[in-house]
Design a protein around this nucleic acid. Structure first.
Lengths: 212, 212
DNA sequence: CGAGTGATTGACTTAGATCAATGACCGTGG
DNA sequence: CCACGGTCATTGATCTAAGTCAATCACTCG
């Protein structure tokens, strides 16, 4: 099986809050690469969780250009916004062979309305995701690969504030950072040479005490 | 007065959902540049809306490095996540002289719990912001300035799918795109020369019909 | 054992950042 | 009323860090 795409401390899981009753009742649907899950304008009767693969949200209406809005990875939720709208606002197309769980919008909305604790948990998850996403965007504003990487590592550090355990591959890290993997390898090597980080193991990075 | 920082179609307003009763009762607080609004670990008794200026969320604990998590612009909400946590998770420091509205967390939580419609509206706002943010992040994954700009323009286009009215300055646009303003000017000029866009007015860009 | 994937480094190119300059425009205070 | 300072728009010249292409090695899995 492929890597679990949702390995990252910074990428919060989005499905934990779901009541078991609803989760267990959600059917699974398989999508071939390129297959459409839903289209803009369709009545929104469900939202989805990506179990495996990748699903793209695409806005094709309007201009000729079809624009990718988002690529949902395994473990992510898809189209939460449809919970509060009558129709989907964009198309969803599987980028590769994928599996999605289908959650009934009606059931979910009813549950959220009935159970304030559930609603609070959902709002909490949304807020946290929002915060995490803002942080990622802030990170992308850092132009220098070195600074960006250090920013990321400082945030990903464990409780001691220095030790980072890489949950995925360095290539995944590079993708998260919006850098090519070569640059990340090189920058890691340079940081290690400067003594700014140490790498006691392949999947562990330790920030030096005085690191800028 | 400075530019309204929240001019952008892609940057959803975050305060509209608030019940008037709470909004009107929220006191305003002025912050000098560098002044701290709250600190990590403090009991979270309020959340904030930035009325003017910029407030940074900073994580300083752990590593020596203090890391900027987010810079909230005027019009944005600050620390929604604190609604569902006992204590703030990071520091908030004014980047420039600023004004914030202070919303009582207790009141808000009570209102959300009491009024499912309000809760639904809040969830809708959070979902939309999440979606918008994902789109911005997706945009940042586009390396080429030309393609990134076209992506942005296609999304910012009005109902006809081709006409974009710039709400702010080109410099603001550049900041949104994560590019320098010089590159944006140049790229706009190049696109115009290629016939991919037209600029009938300073603040209007029209995408050509056959634009890739 | 061979195919596939990740880790790593080298060589080279280029797009975008940086530094710099100019002109338009706008408000403002003398 | 106009000179002045500030901001934005725009373009040129230059530099460099990051992207691209490429190769090698280690490892795992069937």
């Amino acid at each position: 099986m492929a890597h679990d795409a949702d390995h990252h401390g910074l990428r919060p899981r989005s499905l934990d809050w779901l009541p078991d009753a609803i989760r267990e009742r959600a059917p699974e649907r398989r999508l071939g690469a390129g297959e459409t899950l839903f289209r803009q304008g369709e009545h929104a009767a469900a939202i989805f969780g990506v179990a495996e693969g990748r699903v793209r949200l695409i806005r094709s209406a309007g201009s000729d250009r079809s624009v990718v809005l988002h690529t949902a990875q395994a473990g992510e939720f898809l189209a939460e916004a449809a919970l509060f709208a009558g129709a989907y606002q964009c198309d969803a197309v599987a980028a590769v062979d994928s599996r999605v769980r289908v959650y009934s919008k009606r059931d979910l909305v009813a549950a959220l309305r009935r159970d304030p604790d559930l609603a609070a948990r959902f709002m909490a998850v949304l807020s946290q995701q929002l915060h995490a996403l803002r942080t990622r965007l802030e990170e992308r504003n850092i132009r220098s690969a070195r600074e960006r990487l250090l920013h990321h590592l400082a945030l990903a550090a464990g409780p001691d504030g220095r030790t980072v355990r890489l949950a995925g591959t360095v290539m995944d890290l590079a993708a998260d950072l919006g850098l090519t993997h070569e640059v990340v390898y090189r920058t890691l090597a340079a940081l290690a040479k400067d003594g700014a980080i140490a790498r006691p193991a392949a999947d562990v990075i330790v920030l030096a005490a005085g690191a800028v």
